[in-house]
Every structure is written in C-alpha cells, then in structure tokens.
Design a protein around this nucleic acid. Sequence first.
DNA 1: GATATTTATGAGAGCAATTATTATTCTTCT
DNA 2: AGAAGAATAATAATTGCTCTCATAAATATC
Lengths: 140, 140
Amino acid sequence: METETQELKDAGLKITAPRVKILQILESSAIRHLSAEDVYRKLLTNNEEIGLATVYRVLTQFEAAGLVIRHHFEEGHSVFELAGTFHHDHLVCIKCGRVEEFSDADIEALQCKIADKFGFELTEHNLNMYGYCPKCQTGD
Amino acid sequence: METETQELKDAGLKITAPRVKILQILESSAIRHLSAEDVYRKLLTNNEEIGLATVYRVLTQFEAAGLVIRHHFEEGHSVFELAGTFHHDHLVCIKCGRVEEFSDADIEALQCKIADKFGFELTEHNLNMYGYCPKCQTGD
DNA sequence: GATATTTATGAGAGCAATTATTATTCTTCT
DNA sequence: AGAAGAATAATAATTGCTCTCATAAATATC
C-alpha cells in the first residue's frame, strides 16, 4: 500500500488520505472508466468520509498531474481512467455502455499527417466510435 | 428567404418564426459551430424575442431531423453545425477555438476495419484533435 | 377566408453536474 | 513538536440544460 503514496509524490502532489483512497479506487476497479459519482459511491461503500467536491478536486488534480485521463464519451459528465502507458482510442457500446480500447499506429500516423497539413501543433486527440457491441446486436 | 421554409417542410417540421430565424442564423453564420447560447445571443442582437428554452428545443429538433449535427468538443456544452453533405472530423485550436474540418478516407476505412475486428456495428464515430493552430503557436 | 384542432412557444422553476467559498484540519519543513 | 502553508468538508453558487403549463400560433377543415 505504499505504492500509491510514491505515485502521488512523483506526481508532485502531497499525500493526503483522500488522494490515496481515490487512487486506490482507480487502481483496483475492474471497470477502467469511472465517473466522479462512481468514485464517490465506491468511497461511500468503503465508509470513507470524503465529500463529492473533494472527489472532483482530486480527479482534476490527477488529470493535471497526468495520473488520469478525462474523457467525455457522452454529454453531461466526464469519466476518468488511469493514464496508461500509451495512447489508445475507444469503441463505446451505446446500449450497454461497454468500452473497448484499441490502438492503431496507422491511424495515429494519419492523424499526425493531417495535423501537419493544417499546421496544427497537436496536444491531444481522441477518436471515439459508437455503436452496438456484439452482445447488443439483437438480430436486427 | 423561402429556402428555409422549404427546408423545414422537407424535414417534417412546421414553419414557425423561431425555427426559421434559427435556421437563418445557422446558415448565415461565419462560424460553423455554434452553441445554443451563441444562437441565443445572436437572436437577442437581432431583437428577436425567442427564449433560450426554445433555442434548445429547436436545435434538438433540428438534430433529430438531420438538419444539424451536435458535437461536444469540450465538456459541459454542445455546439451545433449545419449538417453538410458528408461526414468530416475536426481539428480544434485550444487557444482561439478555431475549428478546421477535414475528411480522410484512409482513416475512415481503418476505423471500419477496427470496428469489424471487435464485432461492433458502428452508428457514429468522431475524431477530434486538439492543439494550437498556426496563428496561436507563439513560439512558446 | 374564418374557425377548429393541433402543436409550438416563452418564462421561469427545476435539475444534475460541477465549481467556488470558507472555516477547519492536515502535511510538511524546520 | 510547532509554525506555515496547503488540502479538506460542507455548503452555496454556477452552469448548461430541461420541464411545466398557460398562452399563442400554425395547419387543417369547412
């Protein structure tokens, strides 16, 4: 349980109970993409007395520190995922909400080429595809 | 000024002053991507007495009718653009907000290939790239 | 063209997600 | 251990958007 504190230190954040707890939640979750609410509910389940506002604040700090990545798959609320080792894109099932991750070097390369063409200096990019996952294609 | 009414009819919507005005705004705007607030402000500037709720309602109807496409480039609010003839993706300047549109058949093809691999039946996809446009790259 | 029927609108309350404020508590540095 | 500074909890405020419902307008019918 000492790894989280080290990660926080490396990220330049001070060690506080809420930050450690939230990082643990993110690392131990089976579901990679969690909303602030999700995190908050998990904290409540663990009987942690951490306010929702703190969850938002901490997640935003984690984002700034590069520990997590914020996505907005659907309108109105963000989901967060632990920053992995490499960039990837998402396939989101619009029925069950399942998210598949993938990474494609060819697409990445094409994206850079296009950004170059327009003279843009890229800081971020995301490709989200929406549709029905195999399980949710009810024979249509 | 008769074109808008025809477009509305074709979309199966009744002709009302708010709908015509909002469609005109969208068609005459130099900026292709407008938020509901933007549209509302433009209406106010033109001394139109149209409520914000109506703007939202009408834009949502336009979306349902396929007249406009809703994007959520950044969290928390949508922007709308007139539905063009073909799908395209976006390059968004995170400083000045300028949006460049592009379309790349190779990327589209790769996307389909990936969706196939995962067995997804795609309904929608979008690729947004964020960065600094040529004008906003002030040598750091 | 007038009237009936249906549908849309406007104003403001309401809502959900998120952020700001502020007094208090905790972490770190010495 | 104690001071200084930063982080937290609780609550209030804000934002983007939707709902309600009385009123008004648009199409259908005569």
